[in-house]
Design a protein around this nucleic acid. Structure first.
Length: 422
RNA sequence: GCGGGUGUAGCUCAGUUGGUUAGAGCGCCAGUUUGUGGUACUGGAGGUCGCCGGUUCGAAACCGGUCACUCGCCCCA
């Protein structure tokens, strides 16, 4: 730490960014409410096992990308790298498996010890939903439609392709895994080093390798769809026809795989080309095995998470909220009365900026820069006459209005009228 | 974790084959305007050239290391 820098991979959210950040979060909140998802939050740290058990020893997220530490009581804790495990943990520890189905929305920071890049931070923010209980195809359709509606509401759906795949049920997956392994073993010497490793640990992951040698080998590999059993096939067709029916565009991507063991059936990602290598903007899937892995009863579930920073980069900028009215004193004699008036106007529901520093000229200059439309000017002259000046910075007009601390309804009305005018 | 690029004022960037006191525009502050913003003009502040070390009479520039950002790999949101 040579200078006062933010920690690597973290950044401050100053008001300009924060406004866009909140725009994205609020849009997700609104879209999920539309489907009956209710907002909740889990702690940002959990016992290590909450993530290590379900994510599995083979997962990068657990093996090298987590922030884990021992607390003063000797417990091993982990800053959450994602929120699904936490939500399911909350369902189990809260005894909520008695009240299924559950539909949850969350927003908050996540932590992964990764090499930072554009769109990839060590502390980043996600919004997401989890739909716990149902295991039918239409609950998948609802979840995906909710994601599409969210992206559409912030104007980025058009930039995105929806990649969709089915990992099938456990039986289908085991069959395919065996077939793929048998095929790939013949080429094991020619695979990339990474994929040689995956052959042992998690062969399905080789499917989305970007290594050109691997891709060549994969050309003639057994195809996942051929190994889906009847039940899994029908389920997938139910999902896709539901999406088609409501006009959610998708394309089949048999290479879209999830590394984690508890994923099954539906896997999907909304991907954009506008962000370089970090193109996945919203991704999720079905995780029917997760609850049991955490030690709970079997509870089906599906959900998605979206990266707030990534989406913010795609969204048209908005300005932070700020007052449109300022109370400005012309001289020190009016300070107390001006403060009083500012409070009274806030009581009436008007956001007021009350600069206390500098000459009147300077305050007006600042007000202009801050896009303030109306300035209420109060000085000794006005005080002696019991009036204020209402100056409109947009058109330069100015009028004198009565000041009466017992009832300033007239002033409030004049301000409201002026704010409504174009 | 691996490979490439970049780092000079708050911001965007100049800075010649290594040469003496490192520049511009925007922004900021002040004045022209002692009770009135935007425009204009004038002036001012602001830099250990990312950091540490080395080469050299002399380094913002060359070399090494390091930190940060960035592009790709990996992984994913």
């Amino acid at each position: 730490m040579s200078r006062l820098q933010p920690v690597r991979g973290t950044s401050d959210l100053l008001p300009e960014n924060m406004a866009n950040h909140n725009l994205v979060i609020n849009a997700a909140r609104k879209a999920s409410a539309c489907y009956g998802f209710q907002e909740m939050a889990t702690p940002i740290f959990e016992f290590l096992e909450v993530f290590s058990r379900p994510l599995g020893a083979s997962s990068d997220i657990v093996t090298k990308e987590n922030y884990s530490f021992e607390d003063r009581g000797g417990e091993m804790l982990t800053l959450r790298p994602e929120n699904t495990a936490g939500v399911v943990r909350a369902m189990i520890s809260g005894g909520l498996t008695q009240s299924l189905p559950l539909k949850y929305f969350y927003a908050g920071p996540m932590f992964r010890y990764e090499r930072p890049q554009k769109g990839r931070m060590r502390q980043f923010h996600q919004v997401g939903i989890e739909y716990l209980g149902p295991d039918d195809a239409l609950s998948d359709a609802e979840t995906i439609a909710c994601g599409a509606r969210f992206l559409d509401s912030i104007g980025v759906l058009g930039d995105c392709d929806l990649h969709l795949n089915s990992l099938g049920d456990a039986e289908s997956r085991a069959l395919y895994r065996d077939a793929l392994l048998e095929y790939l073993k013949k080429f094991s010497g020619d695979l990339s080093d990474d994929s040689k490793m995956r052959l042992l640990v998690n062969p399905l992951r080789i499917l989305d390798s970007k290594d050109s040698g691997d891709r060549n080998i994969l050309q003639n590999a057994p195809k996942f769809p051929d190994y889906l059993n009847g039940v899994s096939q029908i389920r997938f067709e139910n999902l896709t026809s539901a999406l088609d029916r409501v006009g959610v565009a998708w394309f089949f991507n048999p290479l879209l795989v999830r590394g984690l063991d508890y994923y099954c059936h539906t896997a999907f990602e909304f991907v954009t080309n506008s962000l370089g290598a970090q193109g996945t903007v919203l991704g999720g899937g079905r995780y029917d095995g997760l609850s049991e892995m955490l030690g709970g009863p079997p509870v089906a579930g599906i959900g998605w998470a979206a990266g707030v920073e990534r989406l913010t980069m795609l969204v048209e900028g908005v300005l932070p909220n700020s007052p449109k009215v300022a109370v400005v004193t012309a001289d020190d004699a009016a300070q107390q009365a001006a403060f009083h008036l500012a409070e009274q106007l806030r009581d009436a529901g008007i956001d007021i900026d009350f600069p206390t520093n500098g000459a009147m000229r300077k305050k007006l200059k600042k007000a202009d820069k801050a896009n303030i439309h109306l300035v209420i000017i109060l000085g000794s002259d006005e005080l002696s006459k019991n009036t204020v000046l209402l100056r409109n910075l947009s058109n330069g007009s100015q009028e004198e209005i009565a000041l009466d601390f017992a009832d300033n309804g007239g002033l409030v009305a004049a301000i409201a009228k002026s704010l409504l005018a174009p």
